[in-house]
């Protein structure tokens, strides 16, 4: 079981490494969106400090949306997905592997970039630390929930926009707790409760989301 998941992860990572431009462009999208906000609302450090968690989290959601359509599309186009669906191993586990690989190339780099971008918003060390942690903990849930949308919109016209319509409302709890963790630190409440809930969302998402995703993939392949 573990072998299957790790095989899928290493396969997807190898494929992603051969097309680095995709990863880098999503990352730069994240950087550019975050940098646009100070230009839009003005450079007052007080205001920026207040906006930072929300801005970084929303930008992370949008950057994830960018890479989601490709989660299954390439495999669908060249027929790999049908072979995976026919494999004796449960499709849910295969999806889990793909979700984790997607997180490694999209969510993890976003989280690692966050401290640098947070500096632009004049965040304190504590807040930076919590923000990075919240992104590290929360982004796997984004990949997992997003996979449902990616599978549902597979091969559908207008897939990208439709995907964001479907998935963004479902991202709201992650956004609330992720950005809330930083707010709670700043106001002195402590981030532990938020981070725990975020961890719970991620665990539940990573555990449950592959099954509806697998069902949706089977429908798309019919």
């Amino acid at each position: 079981m573990l072998k299957l998941v790790s095989a899928i992860i290493s396969r997807d990572l190898r494929l992603a490494m051969r097309r680095r431009a995709d990863i880098v462009s999503a990352l730069f999208f994240f950087i550019i969106v975050v940098s646009l906000f100070p230009l839009g609302v003005g450079p007052e450090p007080e205001l920026l400090r207040k906006l930072a968690p929300g801005v970084l989290w929303v930008a992370a959601l949008l950057a994830t949306m960018l890479s989601l359509p490709r989660l299954f599309a390439d495999d669908h186009r060249d027929g790999t997905l049908e072979q995976l669906a026919l494999a004796p191993q449960p499709l849910g586990l295969i999806v889990l592997g793909k979700v984790l690989a997607h997180w490694l190339v999209s969510g993890l780099p976003l989280a690692l970039l966050t401290p640098v971008l947070g500096l632009q918003f004049d965040l304190s060390t504590d807040a930076l630390w919590v923000l990075t942690c919240s992104l590290l903990i929360g982004t796997p849930a984004l990949s997992a929930i997003g996979a449902i949308g990616a599978a549902l919109t597979l091969g559908v016209r207008g897939g990208g926009v439709l995907l964001s319509l479907l998935v963004l409302p479902l991202y709201i709890p992650v956004l609330v707790f992720g950005a809330g963790a930083v707010d709670a630190t700043v106001t002195g409440l402590g981030a532990q409760a938020h981070l725990s809930l975020l961890g719970a969302l991620t665990l539940a998402g990573v555990f449950f989301a592959p099954w509806p995703t697998a069902a949706a993939l089977r429908i798309a392949l019919e």
Partner: peptide, 17 residues
């Protein structure tokens, strides 16, 4: 599938909000 995923999510969304 979308409707069922939505139903599961509605309480989570409600409490988070």
């Amino acid at each position: 599938i979308l409707a069922l995923v939505g139903v599961v999510n509605i309480p989570i969304i409600y409490f988070s909000v």
